[in-house]
């Protein structure tokens, strides 16, 4: 059976576009409001939603997502909320993934998390600070509960590492567009296209590009060579800059609509 994740990439391809993948931390700004924000993003056209697991030490994130994670944790966001939010993503019609730093998953229990995530309708997990070499238990647990694994490649990855990552991934491959942390950037680095081309040589999995992507024009650039466009900080920023919750909902929906239009090939 094709996973819901691969089906989403397949559908986007048949519509001659890249899939729009939105990242938003669970519990941001609160659990309830966060779910409404995700629903608005999905209404705006996101195909896949990465539910972020807020973490105290997000060393791959820039100031925008750090701020969101801090707010979510202050408002009591927990593992339970991450899993509940996953269920809401599914109910709203998008494919739910979780993106998490490794320690919260390990502390929760690798098997327990895989099992509960799958039961809630979660399809896959992105693990930005877990390399395949350290992921032996993770690979076993996700295989057991049929959870898709998404590892990252970076512009600095040598060919031999691209193969390691490709062989360990099952969902898609997350290509980091630049050397740096999350956050909106003026333009997408030229490294992204090269990286995607290099990764294609070692994998048949879909490849999505993230880090620094915030505008429809950037999405359009990426859609020409990648299967998915990942946007995170721009959604978070829209929420942080909105005057109230209603404005935040409108802003993220509009941003999703514009990005979706940008995803055409």
């Amino acid at each position: 059976m094709t996973s819901a994740l691969h089906a989403a990439f397949g559908k986007a391809k048949s519509e001659n576009r890249a899939a729009l993948i939105a990242y938003i931390p669970a519990g941001f700004p609160t659990v309830g409001k966060g779910i409404e924000i995700i629903e608005a993003i999905i209404a705006g056209g996101a195909d896949i939603v990465e539910v972020g697991w807020p973490y105290s030490d997000p060393l791959m994130d820039g100031p925008t997502i750090q701020k969101a994670a801090e707010m979510a944790l202050e408002n009591g966001a927990s593992a339970k909320d991450v899993i509940a939010t996953v269920g809401k993503v599914k109910a709203a019609g998008a494919v739910p993934l979780v993106m998490s730093y490794w320690n919260p998953i390990e502390r929760y229990g690798v098997e327990r998390f895989s099992q509960e995530l799958a039961a809630a309708g979660g399809v896959g997990v992105i693990t930005p600070d877990l390399t395949p070499e350290e992921g032996v238990d993770w690979i076993a647990a996700t295989d057991k509960f049929d959870v898709q694994r998404i590892f990252l490649v970076a512009p600095s990855s040598k060919d031999v590492r691209l193969e390691v990552v490709a062989n360990a991934s099952t969902g898609f491959i997350y290509a980091a567009s630049l050397m740096g942390v999350t956050g909106t950037r003026e333009s997408v680095s030229s490294h992204a296209e090269t990286l995607v081309a290099r990764t294609r040589k070692v994998s048949k999995l879909p490849i999505a590009v993230g880090l620094g992507v915030s505008t429809p024009m950037q999405a359009n650039d990426i859609a020409q060579y990648a299967d998915g466009v990942i946007v995170g900080s721009a959604f978070v920023k829209a929420v942080l800059e909105a005057v109230d919750h209603a404005a935040a909902l409108a802003a993220v929906k509009k941003l999703a609509q514009e990005l979706k239009q940008g995803c055409v090939k």
Binding site: T131, E134, F151, A154, S156, S157, R161, V165
Partner: peptide, 21 residues
């Protein structure tokens, strides 16, 4: 060879840092 002292140690970093390490 991968920097483990028993069950401890290792490399839990973004892929972007693997080449530098």
């Amino acid at each position: 060879a991968r920097g483990h002292f028993g069950q401890f140690g290792g490399r839990f970093v973004p892929e972007a840092l693997m080449a530098a390490l």
